[in-house]
Design a protein around this nucleic acid. Structure first.
Lengths: 344, 344
DNA sequence: TTGAAAGCGCTAACAC
DNA sequence: GTGTTAGCGCTTTCAA
């Protein structure tokens, strides 16, 4: 194996000291144009590649950021497998990181201790958290003045950090308004879990807001709380809705995957979507586009979410950004085939 | 920020030299039980965490592996977004890496030069390639005695490396046999691209094999070559099939996403699946489970593929494994609702 | 404008 | 068994 080319090789061949080479690489001190040119030339000739490990050690900066992901049963697998949301988020992070010369490490979040140790061991420059973790870990990291960015954190304390989320309430509003504009007057609301969960309660709030604007009553009987965000759960809820024989003509499910399960239950009961019921989801999963009928839903730009998080993190690392900001990204109504105007 | 605890702190407090601390951590040389205990104790008390960066620099080993992913339009995004296959593969890699104390870095594959430089700059211990890249890069890395593992590489040279793929031919065979057992005699074969592509030609070979065993003729007219692996392409092909008015009763699409597009086209033409046509896919995407009708398909254990690749790579890095091996993982028929026995 | 030299935190001869 | 010490490749005072 050919010997690694070091800064000293460059120095020797260019006839300068290694300090000077370091100066031109980092653009510090004022090196004369002449020497600079010579050094640059030598670097190119030798195809010299600075060793990041050595740089990390001496600068205490690794040019690496960590991405913390919830762990399910000790593995990232379930969450990655079931939820393409994460991969899209990571695409965004990757895109921006790479553009800025950073690499990123993925890690499942186990114990807060492990997280902190990992950061120290790897000399990470910053961290982005996908989802909510114990607040204590954020505080500890903040105390170490480690830049962090939170994604989808709705807790009160989020405002003390840079955090990025979407406008859930507006999405709920848009979805409901769409159904109302299509002539629906009795609309069911399906939540993946208890509606007091921060996300779902915002979506519900938007739902209520739209009803109010249209002078429609909000009825508790039309609200269904599931036990999780899954196809199976949606399927169960769908069956319950049929059984309940409520006078509703449309359903707003606060998660696409629920909506798909609901539609399946409807199909089995020989209820057609969108003829018998209009159904709208939330999230715009890839699946939703390919389902039949394709699902009307509320969409967010997940890639952008990842990209912004990485941008903010890197800005903070490089001291271009010093304040904590909250980004509430817009959502959009995507009309497909699962909703239709009510038949009079 | 509290000062970082170094090996010297531990040494000082335990009343030994830093070398001794290093010895007990790495289990080299024989340190007396007594000193060992004392050092371990001190390490625990101080919660000392060895600095990976420093270790990397001095050992020339980073405990990091790189994962190379094809780049589309300069970003990982499209491939991640459209193809949950990659995220699942990565889950497997993550799972095994973490268990073995490795981290992994993701990178899109741009120029071979960049890849090599990246490996050197980051001191990576090994590399796994997802998909096919120019062979030259494998050779270069091999020349640097950098352990590598290839996933889904069908080229002849693959056997000179550790490589992992699935038994595509058997999948084609199983799919076709299933249709034949359901009574179908005239079966169409749809390939994402030209059937001379290594993967698709294997799947086609399995198809032909099953036909032959059942004494059914292979007809060129029943083979459709698409232009890529996409829903839209499947949709187009589906329309063409309808238009062609071929006397077929079943279709084997060599990719799920095509199958879904085909089904959509059939639906629009008022042909029902599986009543009018049985359709079977290949890949077992997550989508396929939630589609209606849910898709009968050939499934592979993608997580396992990732896990094995990481295991082999780490074994090679740690010199437990020195030979190149080819892993051809089994596939499985998953029967769902898009295929049915032919109506007489 | 440049260079000498002392680290960064750890490892690994080599010596005792 | 344990300690001394010279690196690993780079940065960064400090002095010239």
């Amino acid at each position: 194996m050919n010997q690694k080319i070091t800064i000293r090789d460059v120095a020797r061949i260019a006839g300068v000291s290694s300090a000077t080479v370091s100066y031109v690489i980092n653009g510090v001190n004022k090196v004369s144009e002449e020497t600079k040119a010579r050094v640059l030339q030598t670097i190119a000739e030798l195809n010299y590649q600075p060793d990041f490990t050595a740089i990390s050690l001496s600068k205490k900066k690794s040019n690496m950021i960590g991405v913390m992901i919830p762990l399910v049963e000790g593995s990232l697998a379930p969450i990655f497998r079931e939820n393409h949301y994460y991969s899209e988020l990571i695409s965004g992070i990757e895109f921006v990181s790479r553009k800025n010369g950073y690499d990123f490490l993925l890690s499942g979040f186990g114990k807060p201790e492990d997280c902190k140790n990992w950061v120290m061991k790897r000399n990470l420059d910053g961290l982005v958290f996908l989802g909510s973790f114990p607040e204590s870990i954020y505080q500890e990291l903040k105390a170490l003045s480690m830049p962090i960015v939170l994604i989808d954190t709705y807790e009160e304390y989020a405002k003390h950090y840079t955090n990025i989320r979407i406008d859930d309430e507006r999405g709920g509003y848009l979805a409901t308004k769409h159904l109302i504009e299509y002539g629906h007057r009795s609309i069911g609301f399906v939540s993946p879990g208890p509606v007091n969960n921060p996300i779902d309660s915002l979506r519900l709030k938007g739902f209520q807001q739209a009803l109010k604007e249209a002078n429609l009553p909000f009825q508790d009987a039309f609200v269904f709380e599931g036990k999780d965000s899954s196809f199976e759960n949606g399927y169960q809820i769908g069956k319950n809705i049929i059984k309940a024989e409520l006078p509703i003509t449309a359903i707003f499910a606060a998660a696409d995957i629920l909506a798909l399960g609901i539609i399946k239950a409807f199909n089995e009961a020989d209820k057609k979507v969108p003829i018998d019921y209009s159904v709208i989801g939330y999230d715009d999963l890839l699946v939703s586009r390919y389902a039949s009928p394709s699902l009307t839903t509320i969409s967010q730009d997940v890639f952008k979410k990842g990209a912004i998080s990485a941008e903010m993190l890197i800005s903070t690392i490089e001291k271009k950004e010093t304040e904590f900001k909250t980004f509430c990204l817009p959502v959009e109504l995507v009309i497909r085939d699962s909703t239709s105007r009510i038949q009079c």
